[in-house]
Amino acid sequence: MARTVQKTETYVGSTILLVLVVIASVIFLEQFDYNSAILQRGAFQAERSIQPSSPITSSPNLIQYAPDGLNPISPAETFGPEDLSDKINGKAELYLSAGFVSLSTQRFAAKEDPEAWLEAFVYHMGSIRNSFSVYSLQRRFEAENLALSEFAYQTENALYFVHGPYYVEVISSVAREGMVALMLSFGKNYVSKTPVSHARIHELGFFPSKYLSKGSISLVPADAFGFERFDSIFTAQYNIADTELTAFLSKRQSQSEAAELAATYGSFLLAQGGTEVKSSLDIPGARLVQIMDTFELIFSQANVLAGVHGAENRKAAEELALMLREKLGEAGQ
């Protein structure tokens, strides 16, 4: 015998069907409101099927810094110390030795020029000293300095700058004025939207400015001059009497550590075949070592280790050492 459907069952059934219709409608409408950065409906066909090696959800979104003229064409990605080399291969060691924390990257295409695209690389280096280190070691000297931040320059296809603990590279696939403007806008947006503490790198003021090659100061994080105990060494290029010279210094924990390190480096040079040369230089404890036709001059003052590296001209090296010592004194060292 056929069972009679009750009104209550009809209402419940209709309500369920209605809810399903609403859900289906919402899904249908939402599919048109996609995030192009994640779905990658960009200019490049190959970008659509990319499976990111890092979870998109954990990546800081760089879209917020992109000016109006750019469209994201890839998801933001983040790399840590364990997989940085997947992204930049053999360059990873440079960053890892300088205290690398993470890298965020994303590609954008120009709206007005679909063939042109750029990629932003934001390296979190943990401190401004570390970000300055990787910036300084890759400095392009043919570049144009920018006022974007204390350390910033651009080339015809790329922008490089330090902002607090962040080292930022923006690299374009083409060298065109329009892309340079977009890269600069990206950089300005990044600086204005990313609050950082205004820490200073005091050692930059320890180098004498006379004869100093502009923009030549670098921070070598480890193994400077092939000596494994030389970490956190600042170097600067000088030109005295047509001779290229490299001055170096490093602030250590104590006066005794600076003196001990200077002595150990001197011994290292002698072990490498260097010979001690008597110097009349008026710097207490200074050592002059001749090695492979060049001179190394090493001394310490207060808690700073300092010297001149690989000088072909002894007289010029001694002149630079005196200038360096005087500047260290002025700086209260």
């Binding site: 291969n89 053999g90 360059k91 890759q138 392009r140 570049a143 015809e156 296809n157 690299i171």
Partner: peptide, 12 residues
């Protein structure tokens, strides 16, 4: 000439 293997700038 410099900044390999990635490079990045035409000045490299």
């Amino acid at each position: 000439m410099t900044n390999g293997p990635t490079g990045g700038s035409l000045t490299d």
